Simulated assay, not measured.
Amino acid sequence: METTHNPAGRTLDETHEMSFIDHLEALRWHIIRAAIAVVVFSTAAFLAKDFLFHDLILGPSRPDFWTYQMFCKLGQALNSPDLCLKKLTFDLQNRQMSGQLSMHISTSVIVGLALAFPYTFWELWRFIRPGLYPHERANSRGAVLFVSVLFLLGLLFGYYVAAPLSINFLASYQLDASIENQIDLQSYISTLTTMSLSCAFVFELPMIVYFLAKAGLVTPEVMRIYRKHAFVVILVIAAVITPPDVSSQLIVTIPIMLLYELSITIAKVVSRNRLQRLNADLAANQGVS
């Protein structure tokens, strides 16, 4: 028997099997509900303009930002005053007539997409889950929760660690003292959102490995063998999403490497459980024969 959905997303009688058109109709409703969630969060972000821009978006452009304050306290504890940021040497500018309105709308949509991600993934999971076998459903319990938590942790890491480091480095970098950094608003927001969202998706590595291990495509032995290669790839990723200074790259590389080691442990547990299930099925088949 197969659990199916009606067009509105409700569970139908398990004895009925859905046609291809029914699947498309069910998918359409899942997409519609996810889109509504994005619109709701985007509208809320658009209406909260002062908080969205003054506190959230423009926060890393001011010395009183939480991350800079923590580095300052660290500098005081280590007797290293250079870690205290007193001023960011750049000015944000808008050079287009409709530039600020356009950035208000586009930024609100990006924030809406980020906030609606857990619900969007849940809708996608509701569409996929009925097609799984019972043991696959049991083994994938909590998938939505873990994917959402990892996404939010990555987003927070990108916003509070990776993005401020990039903004601070790029804003203070000068070829000559006579050249002033007058940063376009679009460039600043693009850097902030790219850094934050990149870290959010990179933090999904453990869940990606989990599902690949469930499918038998990844094993802990392979991940251990290619650990050095993975380290090089992670360094490249860190170099892409961070400014070209060693400290920023290391700060981003370390948590990703920890996630890789965690992924090895996850792959080990999944592979062991998968092997036990295969042995149990083999023993059951031999008992029947």
Rank of each mutant, 00 (worst) to 15 (best):
P164S: 06
L165K: 03
S166N: 14
S166I: 06
S166C: 06
S166V: 13
I167Q: 05
I167A: 03
I167P: 00
F169C: 02
L170H: 09
L170P: 04
A171I: 00
A171P: 10
A171M: 06
S172T: 07
Y173Q: 12
Y173C: 04
Q174K: 11
D176L: 09
D176P: 02
S178Q: 10
S178G: 13
E180W: 09
E180V: 07
N181G: 01
N181W: 03
D184L: 11
D184T: 02
D184W: 10
D184R: 09
L185P: 04
S187K: 06
S187E: 10
Y188N: 01
Y188T: 02
Y188H: 03
Y188E: 02
Y188R: 02
I189W: 04
I189T: 11
I189M: 04
S190D: 01
T191Y: 15
T191K: 11
L192I: 03
L192T: 05
L192C: 01
L192W: 00
T193K: 14
T193A: 12
T194C: 10
M195P: 09
L197Y: 12
L197D: 03
L197I: 10
C199E: 09
C199L: 04
C199P: 00
A200E: 01
F201M: 08
V202Y: 06
F203N: 01
F203G: 03
E204M: 09
E204Q: 13
L205G: 08
L205A: 10
L205H: 12
P206Y: 03
M207Q: 00
M207Y: 04
I208D: 03
V209G: 02
Y210I: 06
F211K: 04
L212Y: 01
K214H: 14
A215L: 13
A215E: 11
G216H: 02
G216M: 02
L217C: 13
L217Y: 06
L217M: 11
V218P: 03
T219H: 08
T219R: 12
P220T: 09
E221M: 15
E221V: 13
E221W: 12
V222L: 11
M223G: 03
M223S: 01
R224W: 14
R224S: 12
I225A: 11
Y226M: 13
R227H: 07
R227F: 12
K228F: 13
K228Y: 15
K228W: 05
K228P: 00
H229G: 15
H229K: 14
H229T: 15
H229F: 15
A230C: 09
A230F: 07
A230G: 06
F231H: 07
F231N: 12
V233L: 06
I234T: 00
I234A: 10
I234S: 01
I234D: 06
V236Y: 14
I237M: 12
I237P: 05
A238C: 06
A239I: 04
V240G: 09
V240Q: 04
I241V: 14
I241A: 09
T242H: 05
